[in-house]
Each structure stands twice: as C-alpha cells, then as structure tokens.
C-alpha cells in the first residue's frame, strides 16, 4: 500500500481550498510538516486555522520553488492554486501566468526532485467545454467537442497537458488529477458564488443550463484523501444530482433577468466593470449549455462519495450566506389562499 505523506507542500494556501487543505493536513499528527506557498500571505483567520502549517511566501513561477522542495524534502505536492477567479488573481493575463507558467515551474521542480513521490493536481471540469453537441454527462474519457476557446478552461487544458507529459517523464510518481465542478458553500468565494448572490441574476434568454455543484467541504476532503494515498488517474469530482439554473435562482429567491444571446458579452462587460461578477466567456457558455460530469469513477475507484448533493450544497450556500429572497416565499402562499377564497366564493356549477 502507498506510504503516508510526511512532508506536504500545498500551493495556493491564501485561497480557500489550499488554506483549508493545509489546515486539515496540519491537524493530522502523522504528517511531519505542512508547507503552504502562495504569492500573498493568507488572511489572519486562515493563518490561525492553519495552526502548525508553515507559510512560505514564494511565487511558484520562480525557480525558488525547487529549492523549497529540495531543502524541506517534500514528498507530496498538492497543486491547488489553479484559479478561475481573475478578480482575486490580479487580472486575466496575470491569472493565466499564475496558472500555466506556475504549473510548468512547479512540475519542473518536481521532475528534478528525488524526494517527491506523489503529486495531486487540482483541475476543473471546464476542460470538457460546453456545447450543444456534448453528451448529457461527461466521463473522464469523453473528448471535448468544442475545445474551450480561452481563459480559465484553456489554461486548465494546457495544465493537464503538462501534467500528462510530466507523468511520462516521471512514471514512478503517481499523479492524481481532480476535475472539480463549480464549488459552492457558505464560505468559499468564486465568481459562481457572486453570480448567485446578485439580487437580479442575468441568464441567457431561451437557455437553461444544468448545473452541478460540489460543496466546499467535500472539495477539501477529496484533496485530503488524494494527498494521503496513491490514487493515480484522472477523476471527475462533483456532487450527485443536478439543479437547473432557473431552479437554482428560484431556490435562492433571486430574480432572473433573461438577456438575448447577442447582448450577453455586453452585460458580461458591465458586470465586470461594476465589479459585480467577472465571468469569462467560457463560463458564459456554461450558462447556455450546462455541464454534468459522471462521478462513478470517483465513487468506485477513488473511494469517495461527496457528503452533499448538488441541491444540498446549494441550499447550504443559501442558508449560510443568509441570502434573503427578493420576494418572500410566503407571498405565494398568500396568493394561493386568495385564489382559494375566490374559488369558494364563486357560485357552484351544479
């Protein structure tokens, strides 16, 4: 069986996923050292949570990362810094730099290292794209019909390419690639979360996407499991079940604003300028067609079943964020009572 990790390096610790993973690993006494790296230091609250985990302020695009790995004798690397949130990463081109160049540099360091014996990479289900010609559910082997045109999804496709060539060069290091669906929860901050927090949610007129979500806690738990044992391969990670976009908006008590397809980029630019939501064109396509992944391999081969279904995760997000419905659901009940009263008052049709 695979060896338990003793020195773990986690990238992207100032973000939700990396930070919480580092905290979980630090709480495990069998792990000797937990190193967290990022370009910006984690928040005070996150640092407290991380406990004995050490923070190293280093840019993974810098060869210095190789030195960190070799001096600390890191044996497990969890690359959790892939981000689809340009706002938090300092713009789109910066995000791409961090994602792609950072991964290349990190993989180069791992390839050189003699101590690294396990690599976990956080990827995204965005690599499947979203188009009308796609099957209803994607398995790990489904070929994307429409290669994502740019942005985050293209970064992820390129990163997975580099990871594959890395495992060709270092077949002795088992690599776990985790393709996450959109994360949601009461604490995480993503563009998807901000989108649902808008009081009036723009949607594409005439389209209703199927949305699959993963609870933030499940995401951390999956990464933790992948870091603890050798589970090589590519796995889709998502909660069970599906919400329709319109249904999710109604569940959150928001109002939807249908926008005709040609005006969608315009509205996207507006919400970005207004610093409401920064949606990449790829994510907008997702709002047209939706994306659902098959998680059979995760449950059987990887041995993990998410605790929250998509619907439960979404409800937890709504409850945890204290999203107040724009229209009180009790109004509908009152309207029904009024209609019933009218029906009773009507003369009986004998």
């Amino acid at each position: 069986m695979s060896e338990a990790p003793s020195v773990v390096l986690v990238t992207g610790v100032s973000r939700f996923l990396g930070g919480h993973l580092a905290a979980r690993l630090a709480a495990d006494p069998s792990i000797e050292r937990v190193l967290g790296v990022d370009t910006t230091p984690p928040s005070r609250e996150m640092r407290r949570r991380m406990g004995r985990a050490e923070f190293v302020r280093v840019d993974i695009r810098n060869p210095l990362i190789g030195k960190v790995i070799s001096t600390a004798k890191v044996d497990t690397v969890v690359h959790a810094s892939l981000s689809g949130n340009p706002g938090a990463s300092g713009g789109r081109s910066m995000m791409m730099e961090m994602n792609v160049i950072g991964t290349m540099q990190l993989l180069a360091a791992c390839q050189r290292s003699e101590t690294v014996r396990r690599l976990v990479v956080k990827s995204t289900s965005a690599v499947y794209g979203a188009s009308r010609r796609d099957p209803a559910t994607f398995t790990e082997t489904t070929e994307p019909k429409a290669i994502p045109p740019g942005g985050y999804a293209k970064d992820a496709v390129e990163i997975e390419g580099y990871v594959r060539s890395f495992s060709r060069r270092r077949p002795d290091i088992p690599v776990t690639t985790l393709r996450f669906v959109n994360l949601i929860g009461p604490r995480i901050d993503t563009s998807f979360v901000r989108y649902f927090s808008l009081p009036v949610v723009p949607v594409v007129l005439g389209y209703d996407a199927r949305v699959q979500l993963l609870h933030e806690e499940d995401a951390v738990a999956v990464l933790e499991r992948a870091a603890a044992q050798d589970l090589p391969g590519v796995f889709n990670v998502g909660g069970a079940g599906v919400l329709m976009l319109s249904q999710a908006i109604r569940r959150a008590g928001r109002l939807s604003l249908p926008i005709p397809q040609p005006a969608v980029p315009l509205v996207g630019r507006f919400t970005r300028r207004a610093r409401l939501v920064d949606f990449s064109p790829e994510q907008m396509r997702l709002l047209n067609f939706g994306r659902v992944v098959d998680t059979t391999k995760l449950r059987t081969e990887f041995g993990f079943t998410p605790r929250w279904t998509t619907v439960q995760a979404f409800d937890d997000f709504v409850a945890g964020r204290n999203l107040r419905p724009v229209i009180d659901p009790a109004t509908w009940g009152k309207a029904q009572d009024a209609a019933l009263a009218v029906a009773r008052a009507l003369p009986s049709r004998a």
Binding site: D208, M244, R250, V292, W332
Partner: peptide
C-alpha cells in the same frame, strides 16, 4: 394549480442528470 406554481416559483422540484 397553486401548489404547482408555488413549487415552480420556489424551485422545490427535482430534475435528473439529463435535465
């Protein structure tokens, strides 16, 4: 009909993976 509309307006229904 009222119940149906309420269910629709509050999103309390389920769809399968195919939508």
């Amino acid at each position: 009909v009222g119940e149906f509309l309420q269910r629709r307006l509050t999103g309390r229904y389920t769809v399968d993976d195919f939508g």
